[in-house]
Simulated scan of single mutants.
Amino acid sequence: MYYQPYAIPRPVSVNWSFYRNDDMVLQLIEQSIQGERNDELFYDFLIKLAPTSQEKEIITGIRDDERKHRAMFRALYTQLTGKAPAVTEEASEQLPSSYLAGIETALLGELKAFEKYRTLYLHINPRYRDWIFEIMTDEMKHASYYNWLYAKNK
């Protein structure tokens, strides 16, 4: 079977009693939905501060990935619970005082997100791990880009 990265998983019957950490998994997914939204809004602000079109393009690509991740987490939550997640649309992070400070915040945020998603990967039903793996590898790619942007602008 060929894996399609943007495909929504087909409904399956999950025996949650087999997984001891189902509450933790759902909580991490809810946190991730909000975190991806916060990142999207934060990166919208960074795009406006970016000094070159190349940097704007890089951050725009990362922002678009965050939108994709949020949609994936929302679909995953709905798949696992049978209901849509109840998450706010408002950002809960402060905006940076400068472009370089924003890049530093973004870099550290991407690395923290990877750590959270690794925990999720290890505790989620194995049939959903490809989704989490895709998101994790995107986060590492983003961290690499932000590391480059930070070095370039330091």
Results as ranks from 00 to 15, higher is better:
P11N: 05
E57Y: 06
L107E: 08
A91Q: 14
L149G: 07
I33C: 03
E66D: 06
N125T: 06
Q31V: 08
D138W: 02
M24L: 09
Q31E: 13
Y145H: 08
E104F: 07
E115M: 12
R118D: 10
P51D: 11
L107H: 13
A75S: 06
T137L: 05
Y77F: 13
E89N: 14
Q34N: 10
A101E: 09
L46M: 10
W16P: 02
R37S: 10
L76V: 00
E110S: 10
G35F: 02
D64N: 08
E93Y: 07
K68A: 00
Y146I: 06
F18Y: 12
T60E: 11
L95W: 06
Y99N: 07
K56C: 05
D65A: 00
A84I: 11
M140F: 10
T137G: 02
L122S: 11
L76Q: 00
D39G: 11
L46T: 08
H123D: 04
P85M: 02
I59L: 06
E40T: 15
S97T: 07
A91M: 14
E90I: 15
Q31T: 07
S92I: 05
E66W: 01
Y150H: 14
L122E: 14
Q34V: 14
R74T: 15
F42K: 14
F18H: 09
M140D: 10
R37L: 09
A84T: 15
K68C: 01
W131V: 15
I62Q: 00
Y19G: 03
I33Y: 04
L26T: 04
N15Q: 11
F18L: 09
E134I: 01
I103G: 01
T105C: 04
K141R: 14
W148T: 10
A151P: 03
Q79D: 12
E104Y: 10
L120M: 13
D64Y: 02
Y145R: 04
R118W: 11
P96M: 03
S53M: 11
